[in-house]
Design a binder for these strands. Structure first.
Length: 420
RNA sequence: GUGCCUGUAGCUCAAUGGCAGAGUACUUCACUGUGGAUGAAGAUGUUGAGGGUUCGACCCCCUCCAGGCACCCCA
């Protein structure tokens, strides 16, 4: 590969086959969103840095956002996440909107990170939020949207699950163990990372925070307790609702789920493969105050985000992405030779007028034309040679079983409709 | 941003410091009215880029670029 200009690090080209996969993904998440009455929205990809500056101290913005000066010298940010944009949009029409809002979005985001598997610098993200309701029912509904999506793409409950926890529950449990308010943020962060660190290292870090051996033991027991949710009325209600919603197979309690983002205040959840092979597929939770930072009145909500990269890796691994490059129902009209080209082009036109998708071949060896159609994954090819023209018929060939039949020209469209 | 690993034909990978190869895919033909097989022939590379050491570098050294693993962070 000589002197081909390179693409930007961490970006991806979407050739037609990848683009078809992206379109398929969009279709699936659109269906899941709309099944619960969520409305699509979007904001700009460019934002002022001020929008994110409100959330000061967050690495996501300070370290990982693309920031540049526009030609007027003003700092511009390529959005690294949608939540601040959503907050601004809600705040600026807070008195006109009908709450609770059920909104969803899909679009590109950028983060200046070290690319690796499942993580790129430019990615697409599905965002779903319900804003203005503080009930546990809203949390359950968001989980059901996510579960519905997982089910619709063909992932089974033994392949992926939504792992759920409650920050308030954990907060109370940490208090019981005697962990101070000052120690809690660090401890929550450590709990979030427990599966990433070797056991002895993790213990060291916990003790370094001033906890004694007894407290360490208590925390480890806490994190092994899969029934901890029974201690929380909220969690009990949530799991009951999830059962009512018919998604109980896709959810599980996990006391180790914390989430990195500080603004989550209640339910938090992440989707993972059950075998733990990939990064988190999606993540979200309940927040108490979405719009306060951008000048609105406090509004609670619950939402989640799913990146396109990991979910596609997972779907690829489980063989769930349809492979068709071109709609297999697209018809392929061959050309016998230069003399019959006109007839073929006219036939193709008539078929398009009747609502079919039609690819028109060029005059070359029929073998090459069939090979081309086969490689595009098409189902049917039409042959219009001298014999067919003479007899006013068209040969319809099934590209999967190699069978072909001659059909009268005036019955052709009806025949093709029946076969679809 | 930190540490480590990798980079050879479209793809998967070979090649003790000594003429860059195989499989597969591709093109053409056997098959001038038919694509999944078979056989024959053909084409394909600045060995990621640039520098250095050497008589000689895919191989050793340096820098950069890209990808991957772990951290950080997170979708």
């Amino acid at each position: 590969m000589k002197n081909v200009i390179k693409s930007v690090k961490g970006t991806r080209d979407f050739y037609p086959d990848e683009m078809a996969k992206r379109q398929w993904l969009i279709q699936k998440l659109t269906e899941a969103s709309e099944a619960f009455g969520y409305q699509m929205y979007d904001g700009p990809c460019l934002e002022t840095i001020d929008l994110y500056a409100a959330k000061s101290g967050e690495e996501l913005v300070k370290e990982q956002a693309f920031v540049f000066n526009d030609r007027g010298g003003d700092p511009i940010t390529l959005r690294p996440e949608l939540t601040p944009t959503l907050a601004r949009m809600v705040a600026s029409r807070q008195n006109q909107l009908t709450f609770p809002l059920r909104w969803w979005a899909f679009g590109p985001f950028w983060r200046y990170e070290r690319p690796q598997k499942g993580r790129t610098r430019e990615f697409f993200q599905w965002n779903v939020d319900q804003i203005g309701s503080d009930s546990i029912q809203a949390d359950a509904e968001l989980l059901a949207v996510a579960a519905t999506f997982l089910r619709n793409v063909g992932l089974t409950p033994d392949q992926v699950k939504l792992y759920i926890n409650d920050r308030q529950l954990m907060d109370g449990q940490l208090s019981k163990i005697g962990i101070s308010a000052e120690q809690k943020p660090v401890m929550l962060h450590l709990i979030d990372r427990i599966d990433k660190l070797p056991a002895d290292i993790w213990d060291e870090k916990v003790l370094a925070e001033g906890l004694n051996a007894e407290q360490l033991k208590a925390i480890r027991e806490l994190l092994e307790n899969q029934e901890l949710w029974q201690d929380s009325e909220q969690m009990r209600n949530l799991f009951a609702l999830l059962e009512d919603l018919g998604v109980e197979e896709y959810v599980a309690y996990d006391p180790k789920i914390i989430r990195g983002l500080d603004y989550y205040t209640g339910t938090v959840f992440e989707a993972h493969t059950v075998n733990g092979e990939f990064r988190a597929i999606l993540g979200g939770g309940h927040y108490a105050n979405l719009v306060g930072d951008v000048g609105g009145n406090p509004l609670p909500g619950v939402g989640f985000a799913m990146g396109d990269v990991v979910i596609m890796l997972v779907l690829e691994a489980y063989g769930l992405i349809p492979a068709d490059l071109v709609d297999p129902e697209t018809l392929f009209v061959t050309v016998f030779n230069e003399d019959t080209l006109t007839e073929s082009i006219r036939l193709a036109g008539q078929l398009r007028a009747a609502g079919f998708k039609v690819i028109q071949a060029e005059p070359e060896k029929l073998a090459k034309q069939f090979k081309y159609a086969d490689r595009l994954g098409l189902s049917r090819a039409l042959v219009l040679g001298p014999e067919e023209i003479e007899g006013n018929t068209v040969m319809v060939k099934d590209l999967h079983n190699f069978e072909q039949v001659g059909i009268d020209r005036d019955k052709l469209i009806e025949y093709l409709y029946q076969k679809v």
